[in-house]
């Protein structure tokens, strides 16, 4: 659990605080995405959690412990950290990169080796093929995976991610988001993540916190913030297509199932309401076929979206 209370940062000589009295709680095992325009203070807020930036005022508690009272390096070893440019150490191989935190924590050799193989497998890289490679021998997507593996290696309860998929192409990005989402759910980590991409925020964040000029505009569950932006700024930032993004958060089972078959091929397993709507638009009909049998209807979908 991450508890942020009244947190502020004012840089020397700045005319306003870049983070201004933000309070925010990320419950154990959930994720929160920080979004906002550039200069809104989201990255500064994130970097105060592992004290890469020292707060001017306020408190941070991680798992109930006062982060500002702890030794900063000890604190950081208990917090996974993933950054946009990954920052792998180019002079070390993949295994040594991943072993960074475990060896700082003083684990023995056998335990580190086992852990490296474990996290490599978790992020979908074959340890036999990748452990001995150097960062320059990896593709952008592979590097990003190693970065996530390195952040997870010390088994930290809390993970901070700063634009974690900013540096990879859109196709890789979608795949990585998918896999990281699955991984985060599986590992029940508490995650605070920064992104400027609303779609990524609602996809990876259970909750979304929208910042503007260092202040918290709105903090709500992903589906909630999309359905009910707090003000005109929030509505504009979240975008005109926010209701479409919202539909993508719900599985087909959110709608009542009709026995009548629908024209066209059935939707795949794991499809969302957005996929159902897209199918209806594509086929020009008011229903879409469910995997197996049965269908969902446009009327039900509209009613569902309208309920918020």
């Amino acid at each position: 659990m991450i508890e942020i209370d009244g947190l502020s940062k004012r840089w020397p000589g700045a005319d306003r605080a870049s983070v201004d009295g933000i309070s925010l709680t990320v419950p154990e095992g959930t994720s929160c995405a920080l979004i906002g325009p550039s200069g809104s203070g989201k990255t500064t807020l994130l970097r105060m959690v592992n004290r890469l930036v020292e707060p001017s005022a306020g408190t941070i508690r991680i798992g109930g412990e006062d982060a500002r009272a702890m030794d900063a390096t000890r604190l950081r070893r208990r917090i996974g950290y993933v950054i946009q440019d990954v920052g792998l150490f180019p002079h070390w191989d993949v295994a040594a990169n991943i072993a960074t935190v475990p060896s700082l924590l003083g684990w023995d050799h056998a335990r580190i080796k086992a852990r490296v193989e474990e996290v490599l497998t978790l992020v979908g890289l074959d340890p036999g093929r990748f452990a001995a490679r150097r960062p320059h021998e990896l593709s952008g997507g592979e590097r990003q995976r190693v970065g996530v593996a390195r952040a997870l290696a010390g088994d930290p309860p809390v993970l901070l991610m700063d634009e974690p998929f900013g540096a990879v192409d859109p196709v890789q990005r979608g795949r990585l988001q998918e896999e990281v989402l699955r991984l985060l759910q599986q590992l029940r980590k508490t995650v605070l993540l920064v992104t400027h991409d609303v779609a990524e925020a609602v996809r990876l964040g259970d909750a979304v916190a929208l910042l503007r000029d260092g202040r918290l505009v709105q903090h709500a569950a992903a589906a909630e913030i999309l359905a009910r932006p707090a003000d005109a700024f929030a509505a504009e930032f979240l975008g005109a297509d926010r209701m479409l993004l919202r539909l993508a958060l719900f599985p087909l089972s959110a709608l009542p199932r009709h026995a009548a078959p629908a024209p066209g091929p059935a939707l795949p397993d794991g499809a969302t309401l957005r996929d159902a709507l897209a199918r209806m638009l594509e086929t020009g009909t008011t229903s879409a076929g469910l995997p197996g049998s049965g269908s969902v209807t446009l009327a039900d979908l509209l009613a569902f979206a309208g309920r918020g």
Partner: peptide, 27 residues
């Protein structure tokens, strides 16, 4: 030197001396 690597070294919890010996000087 690679700024992201230096940032990662700090963020992962290396002390100043560890950063100097393990990352900064080698790079």
């Amino acid at each position: 030197a690679d700024r992201a690597a230096l940032e990662a070294a700090r963020g992962l919890g290396m002390t100043g001396l560890q950063r100097a010996l393990r990352v900064e000087l080698p790079l």
